[in-house]
Design a protein around this nucleic acid. Sequence first.
DNA 1: TATTGTTATACTCTATAACTATA
DNA 2: TATAGTTATAGAGTATAACAATA
Lengths: 148, 148
Amino acid sequence: MPVDVATAALDRLLELTVVLGRDMSGHLAGQGLTESRAHLLFVLHGTGPTTQRALADALDVTPRTVTGLVDGLEASGHITREPHPTDRRATLVTPTPAGAAAARALAEGRVELARALFADWRPDDVERLTAGLDAVLSRVQTLVEESS
Amino acid sequence: MPVDVATAALDRLLELTVVLGRDMSGHLAGQGLTESRAHLLFVLHGTGPTTQRALADALDVTPRTVTGLVDGLEASGHITREPHPTDRRATLVTPTPAGAAAARALAEGRVELARALFADWRPDDVERLTAGLDAVLSRVQTLVEESS
DNA sequence: TATTGTTATACTCTATAACTATA
DNA sequence: TATAGTTATAGAGTATAACAATA
């Protein structure tokens, strides 16, 4: 495998991470959200009321960081803190109606983006691309695990 | 184009941005660098001595942010500040030998990663993937420009 | 004793605004 | 008058460590 062919592919991937990130940020700003807070809200939307501890695990982040993110989302009206019914140490985080609406809008935005990106493609080609990305993905994951 | 086929492809791309970012961070930490500082150092390595103003433009960041990044890189011994020979307002930023070595190591690491990722691939398939990513890339760029 | 979430502290990236020294 | 880089200030994400309340 020629090195320049491989590096060309990696370069495109790295550039895509930048450009996609920029596009995402635009959508998030419209909902009054940052990337990290949107991530938390999205996880929450998928699971229902969740303790901060569980969120820390899900986001792969320390409990202290979750405190900050939840503080921000509470102040912006996207979520509420409620006492855990049986464990008085724990807090349950729940989306407000506005928070749930924002999460739905984000999910919808992702579908829109996918539609816009691949509108002109043949389904076969998209599936081939997905398969290729899957292969790269599992390889990277293996490499990360090996090196840690 | 079925929506689920398109969203599957986008999902892999978004997941790859996360995983690739994690892998990159590992390499950077080994050089005592953060992502932003590594980016600056990398640009510098490609251009030679550069004013902070030019770095701000190249990184698409405010001059104040460059001040902070250069402060950090100077403290860690990766770069030096020197007076501009003709414009006494300006500062020229130059990599130290250690900084240049770190930049080379990063570049080498990227080649290593590319090699590892695509070792088992046929060159044709890698080129097809690159072409696909190129198409997605230019589409995203169009979308970002339209929405701004 | 172990766990949940907090306060305390610190570092990084980012931005805007005001200011100094120069062009 | 305009530009280069700084100080001042602020917000966000992240981390570790110490601590209170609870299990």
